[in-house]
Design a binder for these strands. Structure first.
Lengths: 209, 209, 209, 209
DNA sequence: TTATAAGCGAGACGGTACGTCAGGTCTTTAA
DNA sequence: TTAAAGACCTGACGTACCGTCTCGCTTATAA
């Protein structure tokens, strides 16, 4: 997947088909929707993509890496619309994230690759760089806005700021994932409001609807 | 797995071996430690347990159900020691939960079965009844104590109380799981302290170490 | 199957059910008709007979012995009606034997147990005593009649007589079995006439229809 | 098993290994010798041949077809040496055939596949084309020679000639098989002489040693 | 009347082989 | 060198029967 933008000396032989790459990733998402993670097979993906198995393996050595790449792009669609207040901004991103987790591709794939990653450092790194770290931007942006609005104080040190962002990311992402996939309950407006209130106000100040 | 307490008329034929049940669950945990979820095979578990494959399949039709049952009992070890304050109680259970997730059996298995459950309602129900619902006791007990201590107000209605407990459970469990397995960062004393502070005080009152 | 007619001192305990014996043999024949030799299973026979597997195994240790016993009785139905001449007598028994081999029970079972017997001396002996030797009576009777009619000379010695009977038995039985099962062609009146002519007249005098 | 002589456009993909074919058939014969028909397993054959089970199943769907093909070639070794007279020629082929049936591969396999063929038309056809029909050449050649020598008359019609050959084939093959496998008695010089005398001279002219 | 002993139906049990399927690799021909 | 096609090896799958066992129960004879 490391294609140099301008190859100084183009490698000899037939060049790789860019169309194949796209077809494979599309086919992977389709297969995830239809079959789910555990019944998705490399042979089936190759067939859907109209590509030989060798072509697939030349690009992705393992099913889990293929799925991470196929799914990662979906997470980049998440946005943080400015809705005027920290509370509303968080609520908005929670609902967006929940909607993403409702899609069958992500629902079945995310936990599966995370599970695999507990025994595979390379996969863990790929998930982190392709998905997790990229989405921290939402937390950073949200905090910036809240600080600009005066809803949150500025951190005293960059280290503390980073640590803080990580913590908040784990809390928001973790809560939504747990509600949606483990508890298997809907993440609707009500839940999002209650969660946001808890997050902003803390246990002491909780006053759910 | 539903053995009536007092079978009025015991079923005919040779009864199932209780020893086999225990041996299989033990073997499953061992295999999880050594091989992880994805490399665990039914045949291997049977062999480790000194049991025929048919004996295993007679009890558990699928690998994921077997693993849920094998792992569920570990979650029952979680306890909520009374450490004097809500903050310290939460911190304590967070660290306990993190320690549990550090164990190779649970680390590799939990996310995997959750992933499978997204396409399998029966499995989802089994996870809920064997693991999730059983651990909500910790939230309920913690809240009770905090209310007795005057740290938290009493809920106005039972419905609200239940909804509230579910929310808090998702937040705590979700955050710890996300930190430990997705972000793959250690859940140590410092993190636990920061998280607890956030949970109790909310975003506004966050003052991490 | 060696139950003395009048047991001097009947063994203690509950006696074996004679009904079970009959039910098992009937069930075996039924199963042969429906399933054929290779798909017949001990468990299925037991079930058809309304009998536990243990009851079956207490009587017959192996499927092949059971089948020999179940089928042997059918061969005893063969008879040698006196049709007036050696030629016609042979012809008659050939057609009878062919009809027996057309029955699905025997067709599927006979060659199968013979095949098994090539590696199992005990089975070989059982086949010989339960089927083969019992049917030599037909040859002996036929020869007797032919000799009485003056169609055949009397043998010079008992040894030669026995050897001769064995040979003729092998030729008749072998030819019919080979035609019916190996060549898989019908043993009809025409064939029986031609075969009989060849057997009686020899290659030199063959004048088929 | 239908390999076109000159494939105009060779099929795409890796061609099947001819070495695998040979190794499998050899392994099958070895396994027949060591284990016999009923204990021969596809997995074991594959292992002996140093081939994956899938490779085996790609060529032979059933054990019985595999065995027919493995054994058929042995029957092609039968020859009809010119020993000067019809009587001696028949005697010679009888002994050869008996020797072939003494080999453990054929002894255990022949009756077994015939037994299976009673319920499987495709197998029946395979046996006929691979074994039975090919060996009728022996009868045809023997008759030709005898007719040239003036020992046998020429048939009046081709139909009659064919029918006659089939009959004689069934009688010879049937008698030898029955003697060797069903009666389980040796086919030695003496028996061969007696049988030949009976075949040529008929029951009336029988004068065994 | 009560042992004692075997038979019996039911079904669990440890095994072996089945035939299939998926993961990856290798070997063809064509581009 | 890549690509498509498909053969190949490996290893797990879940099932079917095997023949044995362990239950609770029945049915005989002998004490």
């Amino acid at each position: 997947m490391s294609t140099p933008a301008t190859p100084a000396h183009p490698r000899p032989g037939r060049p790789r088909s860019a169309a194949a790459d796209a077809a494979i990733l599309d086919a992977t998402r389709d297969a995830l929707v239809e079959l789910g993670w555990s019944k998705l097979t490399m042979g089936d993906v190759a067939q859907r993509a109209g590509v030989a198995k060798t072509t697939l393996y030349r690009r992705w050595a393992h099913k889990n890496e293929l799925v991470v790449d196929a799914v990662a792009v979906l997470f980049d669609e998440l946005q943080l619309p400015d809705r005027g207040s920290l509370l509303e901004d968080v609520q908005g991103v929670v609902l967006q994230f929940a909607a993403l987790l409702e899609r069958p591709e992500t629902k079945t794939a995310l936990m599966a690759v995370v599970a695999e990653s507990t025994r595979d450092a390379a996969l863990r790194e790929r998930i982190r760089s392709a998905i997790v770290d990229r989405q921290k931007r939402l937390v950073l942006l949200g905090r910036e806005r809240a600080q600009a609005r005066g809803e949150l104080p500025y951190e005293e040190s960059p280290v503390q700021a980073a640590r803080n962002a990580d913590l908040i990311f784990d809390v928001i992402a973790g809560a939504v994932v747990h509600r949606a996939l483990v508890s298997a309950e809907p993440v609707d407006e009500t839940w999002a409001r209650n969660f946001t209130a808890l997050l902003v106000g803390g246990l002491g100040g909780v006053t759910p609807a």
